[in-house]
């Protein structure tokens, strides 16, 4: 064999093409630059960092033992309120999200301007945090569970609607075309063509959202929107650390129970 033949074989093998390597390098560089810039400009007092472990240990010492007696008095009812807010908020949110999900799916709604309009609603409700919605609704409806429930519902629209429209767009067009060809009206096309194909995805994302909403409903009380967050806020403002610890333990229990319940129901129905 001549020299030129082996030159092709001897060339070093590289896993990625040049363009890919440059793109990755740029990402790494940007990341390092962002971290260095953040460290240099963020306003953190170094003494506080050194002092942090001691302060956290002190906080934990004050919290122990948890004030178990306070649970039946004021925590239990507030915790149940949080769960009610999460559930009702999820149901309302899903009901509002469904139409936008259908409108945002390109294969269900053939008008591009409607797709974009629906997508704008989904993006903006997803980008406004539950707490911001809660601040709004507390200002409009006054403090209490109504504000919290609506905050949960509105923030859920974007999440549920987006994932639902993606599930709709991933359906197979076969059954739908068959129904259309048979002259089925729009409602029948949705309930017999789309729905059977998307229902597993739908139930699983509703359960997932409920799980998230249980966690979110707990903080709502901090801005006066009902639930166990208000009990937490009271205890914090009065520096009753043992009571704070009890609220945190109760929250931990509920959140873990919700996660277990969601896993169980998901296995049962899907």
């Amino acid at each position: 064999m001549s020299q030129t033949d082996t030159a092709v074989i001897d060339r070093e093998w590289k896993r990625y093409a040049l363009g890919e390597r440059i793109a990755r390098f740029v990402v790494y560089l940007a990341l390092v630059a962002a971290v260095v810039l953040s460290i240099r400009t963020v306003e953190v007092i170094p003494d506080f960092i050194l002092d942090a472990p001691e302060q956290i240990a002190d906080l934990l010492r004050r919290m122990w033992p948890p004030d178990v007696a306070s649970y039946p008095q004021e925590i239990h009812a507030a915790l149940l309120d949080s769960l009610h807010i999460a559930t009702v908020g999820t149901v309302l949110g899903v009901m509002m999200a469904l139409p936008f999900g259908f409108l945002a799916a390109r294969n269900v709604t053939p008008w591009a301007w409607l797709n974009w309009l629906a997508r704008l609603v989904l993006i903006s409700t997803r980008s406004i945090n539950t707490l911001v919605f809660a601040l709004f609704f507390v200002a409009v409806f006054g403090p209490g569970a109504l504000a919290g429930t609506l905050a949960i519902a509105f923030h859920s629209i974007g999440f549920v609607g987006r994932l639902f429209s993606e599930a709709l767009e991933n359906t197979s067009p076969g059954p739908i075309e068959a129904l259309r060809a048979a002259g089925a009206p729009g409602a029948s096309v949705i309930s017999f063509g789309y729905w059977p194909q998307v229902s597993p995805a739908f139930w699983s994302l509703v359960l997932f959202r409920w799980d998230i909403n249980v966690r979110e409903s707990i903080v709502l009380g901090l801005v006066g929107a009902g639930g166990v967050g208000m009990a937490l806020d009271n205890a914090l403002n009065l520096f009753q650390w043992n009571r704070v610890a009890m609220v945190l333990l109760a929250i931990l229990g509920v959140v873990i129970a919700a996660e277990v319940a969601v896993t169980y129901i998901r296995k049962k129905i899907i």
Binding site: F48, I49, D51, A52, Q55, I56, D58, L59, L131, R215, E216, I218, V219, L222, L232, L236, L248, I251, L252, V255, I256
Partner: peptide
């Protein structure tokens, strides 16, 4: 299990 805002409260008290 805890929302970031709740963890933040504790850290505000601590640091």
């Amino acid at each position: 299990s805890f929302h970031p805002v709740i963890i933040a409260i504790l850290f505000v008290k601590a640091v």
